[in-house]
Simulated scan of single mutants.
Amino acid sequence: MKTDWHEILQLLLNATGETLYMVLLAAIFTVLIGLPVGVLLFISRRDGLFPLPRINRVLGAVINLGRSLPFVVMLIALIPLTRLLVGTTLGSTAAVVPITIGAFPFFARIVENALDEVDKGRIEAILAMGGHIGHVIFKVLLPEALPALLAGLTLTLVMLIGFSSMAGVIGGGGLGDLAIRYGYQRFNNQVMVATVVVLVILVQSVQSLGDGLVRSLAHRR
């Protein structure tokens, strides 16, 4: 079955819009959840600013579990939760739930590792001057780790694009759904190739923009 390029273009525009919607919305929730979780992982270490070893171990185990599960398995396993939260398991909005749950453990570890690179002397100086944990987090840790956090966010966005494509397996919409329904199931190589090209462009654009922001921030410092 052949599809004319005008129809392919219209399908690609709609699917790209759905993919961008999923990625941007999931990115917001990923940062809102992953950033505080990553900070908590860092400060709750046995030798951290606010030692909570048991909570740290439990939280670390949950994060490791989330990172170890294949995303396709997670998509299926989270169908009941998605239906509970959104009311449906189909469409771009529903896909945001498993995408976010699959991505925030990865970003949380990135945050923890980024904070681990901050000069410990700066932290000790703030504490010596009477600063509390809030001062350390917002005046030292996050500002000093910003380049690493931006680089990690770039990697996370690229991963989210991949997750959004896999969400097409359960009817999540976007480019993945287009590739499956109009490309694979209908044996339409034109749609498959066009979808791959758009995904590559999206990934390269995000990576280039993220790298540029990190370099710019590094030069300013």
Rank of each mutant, 00 (worst) to 15 (best):
Q185D: 11
Y182P: 01
A167I: 00
G212H: 05
L153N: 08
I28F: 15
E112V: 02
V136A: 10
F104P: 03
F187D: 13
A61T: 14
V39T: 05
V200K: 06
V158C: 03
N113W: 02
V193Y: 11
L52P: 00
P143C: 13
S68T: 11
D211G: 14
G172I: 00
R122T: 09
L20W: 09
I110E: 05
V31P: 05
L85N: 05
V197T: 08
L35G: 08
G134A: 15
L153Y: 10
F106G: 01
F42H: 14
M129T: 10
N113M: 08
S68Y: 09
F107H: 06
P98T: 03
L11V: 02
R109H: 01
I137F: 11
G38V: 06
V198I: 15
K139S: 15
T195C: 11
E117Y: 05
F104S: 00
E7M: 11
H6K: 13
Q185E: 14
V23F: 07
G171M: 04
G183C: 02
T30I: 10
P80H: 10
R83M: 13
L115H: 03
R45N: 01
A103E: 03
M74G: 04
V200Y: 07
Q185S: 08
L52D: 07
L90V: 09
K120W: 13
V196S: 07
G212M: 03
